[in-house]
Computed example of a mutant assay.
Amino acid sequence: MPNPKEQNASAAPTAKKKPQVSPSPERRGELLAIAADVFAEQGYNATTVRKIADAAGMLAGSLYYHFDSKESMLEEILRTFLTELWDGYDTVLQAQLDPRATLEALVTESFREIDRHRAAVAIYQKESRHLVAQQRFQYLSDSQQRFEKAWLTTLERGVAEGVFRDDLDVRLAYRFVRDTVWVAASWYRPGGGHSPEEIARQYLSMVLDGISVRT
Protein backbone atom coordinates (compact mmCIF):
# COMPACT_ATOMS: atom_id res chain seq x y z
CA MET A 1 0.00 0.00 0.00
CA PRO A 2 1.31 3.44 -0.75
CA ASN A 3 2.84 5.36 2.11
CA PRO A 4 1.02 8.76 2.08
CA LYS A 5 3.41 11.70 2.49
CA GLU A 6 1.29 14.69 1.73
CA GLN A 7 -1.14 16.38 4.06
CA ASN A 8 -3.81 18.81 2.98
CA ALA A 9 -5.72 21.61 4.65
CA SER A 10 -9.19 20.80 5.94
CA ALA A 11 -11.79 20.74 3.22
CA ALA A 12 -14.39 23.47 3.13
CA PRO A 13 -17.86 22.23 4.08
CA THR A 14 -19.83 20.93 1.13
CA ALA A 15 -23.55 21.48 0.91
CA LYS A 16 -25.42 18.19 1.05
CA LYS A 17 -28.58 17.34 -0.79
CA LYS A 18 -30.53 14.12 -0.68
CA PRO A 19 -30.24 12.04 -3.86
CA GLN A 20 -33.50 12.03 -5.79
CA VAL A 21 -32.84 9.40 -8.44
CA SER A 22 -30.74 6.26 -8.78
CA PRO A 23 -28.48 6.29 -11.82
CA SER A 24 -27.75 3.09 -13.70
CA PRO A 25 -24.67 1.23 -12.45
CA GLU A 26 -22.93 2.14 -15.71
CA ARG A 27 -23.64 5.86 -15.37
CA ARG A 28 -22.70 5.83 -11.70
CA GLY A 29 -19.42 4.17 -12.58
CA GLU A 30 -18.74 6.77 -15.29
CA LEU A 31 -19.35 9.64 -12.87
CA LEU A 32 -17.13 8.10 -10.19
CA ALA A 33 -14.34 7.55 -12.74
CA ILE A 34 -14.56 11.20 -13.75
CA ALA A 35 -14.58 12.32 -10.11
CA ALA A 36 -11.55 10.11 -9.36
CA ASP A 37 -9.58 11.71 -12.19
CA VAL A 38 -10.44 15.21 -10.96
CA PHE A 39 -9.58 14.36 -7.33
CA ALA A 40 -6.27 12.81 -8.43
CA GLU A 41 -5.31 15.75 -10.62
CA GLN A 42 -6.45 18.69 -8.51
CA GLY A 43 -6.45 17.30 -4.97
CA TYR A 44 -9.46 16.56 -2.79
CA ASN A 45 -9.64 19.94 -1.02
CA ALA A 46 -9.33 21.92 -4.25
CA THR A 47 -12.00 19.86 -6.00
CA THR A 48 -15.57 21.12 -5.88
CA VAL A 49 -18.76 19.45 -6.98
CA ARG A 50 -18.94 22.05 -9.74
CA LYS A 51 -15.53 21.01 -11.09
CA ILE A 52 -16.60 17.38 -11.16
CA ALA A 53 -19.87 18.30 -12.86
CA ASP A 54 -18.03 20.41 -15.44
CA ALA A 55 -15.74 17.48 -16.23
CA ALA A 56 -18.82 15.27 -16.61
CA GLY A 57 -20.54 17.80 -18.85
CA MET A 58 -23.48 18.38 -16.53
CA LEU A 59 -24.82 20.98 -14.10
CA ALA A 60 -23.59 20.83 -10.51
CA GLY A 61 -27.17 20.53 -9.28
CA SER A 62 -27.69 17.49 -11.49
CA LEU A 63 -24.76 15.71 -9.85
CA TYR A 64 -26.55 15.96 -6.51
CA TYR A 65 -29.29 13.76 -7.96
CA HIS A 66 -26.73 10.94 -7.97
CA PHE A 67 -24.49 11.66 -4.94
CA ASP A 68 -25.19 13.67 -1.80
CA SER A 69 -21.67 15.12 -1.50
CA LYS A 70 -18.13 14.95 -2.82
CA GLU A 71 -17.23 13.09 0.38
CA SER A 72 -19.62 10.31 -0.62
CA MET A 73 -18.03 10.11 -4.05
CA LEU A 74 -14.54 9.89 -2.59
CA GLU A 75 -15.56 7.24 -0.09
CA GLU A 76 -17.10 5.07 -2.80
CA ILE A 77 -14.01 5.49 -5.02
CA LEU A 78 -11.61 4.41 -2.26
CA ARG A 79 -13.81 1.62 -0.89
CA THR A 80 -14.21 0.12 -4.37
CA PHE A 81 -10.45 0.16 -4.89
CA LEU A 82 -9.67 -1.40 -1.50
CA THR A 83 -12.42 -4.02 -1.80
CA GLU A 84 -11.02 -5.22 -5.11
CA LEU A 85 -7.46 -5.07 -3.80
CA TRP A 86 -8.32 -7.28 -0.84
CA ASP A 87 -10.32 -9.69 -2.97
CA GLY A 88 -7.13 -10.27 -4.95
CA TYR A 89 -4.79 -10.30 -1.97
CA ASP A 90 -6.97 -12.70 0.01
CA THR A 91 -7.06 -15.11 -2.93
CA VAL A 92 -3.25 -15.07 -3.00
CA LEU A 93 -2.84 -15.46 0.77
CA GLN A 94 -5.38 -18.27 1.02
CA ALA A 95 -3.59 -20.24 -1.72
CA GLN A 96 -0.79 -21.01 0.77
CA LEU A 97 1.97 -20.68 -1.81
CA ASP A 98 5.62 -20.72 -0.83
CA PRO A 99 6.97 -17.30 0.30
CA ARG A 100 8.59 -16.34 -3.01
CA ALA A 101 5.51 -17.31 -5.03
CA THR A 102 3.33 -15.40 -2.56
CA LEU A 103 5.50 -12.29 -2.92
CA GLU A 104 5.40 -12.58 -6.71
CA ALA A 105 1.62 -12.97 -6.70
CA LEU A 106 1.10 -10.00 -4.35
CA VAL A 107 3.29 -7.78 -6.53
CA THR A 108 1.44 -8.88 -9.68
CA GLU A 109 -1.94 -8.24 -8.07
CA SER A 110 -0.75 -4.79 -6.96
CA PHE A 111 0.15 -3.80 -10.51
CA ARG A 112 -3.21 -5.09 -11.72
CA GLU A 113 -4.95 -2.84 -9.19
CA ILE A 114 -2.91 0.15 -10.36
CA ASP A 115 -4.11 -0.67 -13.87
CA ARG A 116 -7.74 -0.84 -12.74
CA HIS A 117 -7.72 2.03 -10.24
CA ARG A 118 -4.79 4.32 -11.05
CA ALA A 119 -6.63 7.49 -10.01
CA ALA A 120 -7.83 5.92 -6.74
CA VAL A 121 -4.27 4.87 -5.90
CA ALA A 122 -3.03 8.41 -6.57
CA ILE A 123 -5.78 9.82 -4.34
CA TYR A 124 -4.90 7.37 -1.59
CA GLN A 125 -1.24 8.37 -1.72
CA LYS A 126 -2.01 12.08 -1.52
CA GLU A 127 -4.98 12.18 0.82
CA SER A 128 -5.23 9.22 3.17
CA ARG A 129 -3.07 10.56 6.00
CA HIS A 130 -5.41 13.52 6.30
CA LEU A 131 -8.59 11.55 5.64
CA VAL A 132 -8.06 8.96 8.41
CA ALA A 133 -8.69 11.71 10.96
CA GLN A 134 -12.34 11.58 9.85
CA GLN A 135 -14.51 8.79 11.23
CA ARG A 136 -15.99 7.85 7.86
CA PHE A 137 -12.49 7.19 6.48
CA GLN A 138 -11.14 5.23 9.45
CA TYR A 139 -11.24 2.09 7.31
CA LEU A 140 -8.18 3.42 5.46
CA SER A 141 -6.07 3.01 8.59
CA ASP A 142 -7.47 -0.46 9.22
CA SER A 143 -6.62 -1.51 5.68
CA GLN A 144 -3.08 -0.14 5.97
CA GLN A 145 -2.42 -2.20 9.12
CA ARG A 146 -3.81 -5.30 7.44
CA PHE A 147 -1.68 -4.62 4.36
CA GLU A 148 1.51 -4.25 6.38
CA LYS A 149 0.85 -7.47 8.29
CA ALA A 150 0.32 -9.46 5.06
CA TRP A 151 3.58 -8.31 3.51
CA LEU A 152 5.71 -8.57 6.65
CA THR A 153 4.39 -12.06 7.39
CA THR A 154 5.31 -13.17 3.86
CA LEU A 155 8.83 -11.78 4.14
CA GLU A 156 9.37 -13.19 7.64
CA ARG A 157 8.16 -16.61 6.51
CA GLY A 158 10.58 -16.44 3.58
CA VAL A 159 13.51 -15.77 5.89
CA ALA A 160 12.46 -18.51 8.33
CA GLU A 161 12.15 -21.06 5.51
CA GLY A 162 15.46 -20.12 3.91
CA VAL A 163 13.85 -18.69 0.77
CA PHE A 164 15.10 -15.16 1.48
CA ARG A 165 18.49 -14.19 2.95
CA ASP A 166 18.78 -14.59 6.70
CA ASP A 167 20.33 -11.11 6.98
CA LEU A 168 17.34 -9.48 5.27
CA ASP A 169 15.88 -6.51 7.15
CA VAL A 170 12.26 -7.47 6.53
CA ARG A 171 10.78 -4.12 7.55
CA LEU A 172 13.15 -2.23 5.28
CA ALA A 173 12.44 -4.69 2.47
CA TYR A 174 8.70 -4.22 3.00
CA ARG A 175 8.98 -0.44 2.80
CA PHE A 176 11.13 -0.62 -0.32
CA VAL A 177 8.78 -2.99 -2.14
CA ARG A 178 5.67 -1.10 -1.01
CA ASP A 179 6.92 2.27 -2.19
CA THR A 180 8.54 1.14 -5.42
CA VAL A 181 5.45 -0.79 -6.50
CA TRP A 182 2.77 1.77 -5.72
CA VAL A 183 4.67 4.79 -7.02
CA ALA A 184 3.96 3.32 -10.45
CA ALA A 185 0.55 5.00 -10.23
CA SER A 186 2.33 8.30 -10.93
CA TRP A 187 3.54 7.19 -14.35
CA TYR A 188 1.55 4.13 -15.41
CA ARG A 189 -1.13 4.62 -18.04
CA PRO A 190 -3.44 1.81 -19.18
CA GLY A 191 -2.68 0.81 -22.74
CA GLY A 192 0.78 2.36 -22.53
CA GLY A 193 2.51 -0.59 -24.14
CA HIS A 194 3.06 -2.85 -21.12
CA SER A 195 0.49 -4.96 -19.34
CA PRO A 196 0.42 -5.06 -15.53
CA GLU A 197 1.70 -8.63 -15.69
CA GLU A 198 4.65 -7.64 -17.89
CA ILE A 199 5.58 -4.78 -15.56
CA ALA A 200 5.34 -7.14 -12.57
CA ARG A 201 7.65 -9.67 -14.26
CA GLN A 202 10.28 -7.01 -14.98
CA TYR A 203 9.99 -5.56 -11.49
CA LEU A 204 10.29 -8.96 -9.79
CA SER A 205 13.26 -9.87 -11.94
CA MET A 206 15.10 -6.74 -10.79
CA VAL A 207 14.13 -7.08 -7.12
CA LEU A 208 14.67 -10.82 -6.74
CA ASP A 209 17.47 -11.47 -9.24
CA GLY A 210 19.16 -8.07 -9.73
CA ILE A 211 20.03 -6.29 -12.95
CA SER A 212 23.63 -7.46 -13.41
CA VAL A 213 24.49 -10.15 -15.92
CA ARG A 214 24.80 -13.46 -14.13
CA THR A 215 28.06 -15.31 -14.64
Rank of each mutant, 00 (worst) to 15 (best):
M1V: 08
P2N: 09
K5V: 14
E6N: 11
E6Q: 09
Q7P: 03
N8G: 09
S10I: 15
S10V: 14
A12H: 09
P13K: 13
T14A: 15
A15W: 11
K18M: 11
K18C: 03
S22N: 11
S22R: 10
S22P: 00
P23K: 10
R27M: 10
L31K: 04
I34Y: 02
E41R: 12
G43H: 01
T48R: 06
K51Y: 09
I52Q: 00
M58Y: 03
G61D: 09
S62E: 13
S62K: 12
L63Q: 03
Y64S: 07
Y64E: 09
Y65S: 13
D68E: 13
S69E: 05
K70L: 06
K70G: 04
E71P: 00
S72Q: 10
M73Y: 03
E75K: 14
E75V: 03
E75I: 00
E76D: 11
I77L: 01
I77Q: 03
T80V: 07
F81T: 03
D87Y: 10
D87F: 07
D87W: 02
Y89K: 02
V92S: 05
A95I: 09
A95Q: 12
Q96N: 09
L97S: 05
L97V: 03
L97P: 01
L97K: 12
P99H: 05
A101G: 06
A101M: 11
T102H: 02
A105N: 02
E113M: 14
I114S: 01
D115R: 06
Y124T: 06
Y124G: 02
V132P: 00
A133P: 00
S141H: 13
S141E: 15
Q144Y: 14
Q145D: 14
F147R: 01
L152G: 01
E156Y: 08
E161H: 07
D166A: 13
D169A: 14
A173Q: 12
V177E: 02
D179V: 00
V183R: 12
W187R: 06
Y188E: 00
R189G: 05
G192M: 07
E197S: 11
L204M: 08
S205A: 13
L208P: 03
L208S: 08
D209M: 08
G210N: 07
R214I: 15
T215R: 15
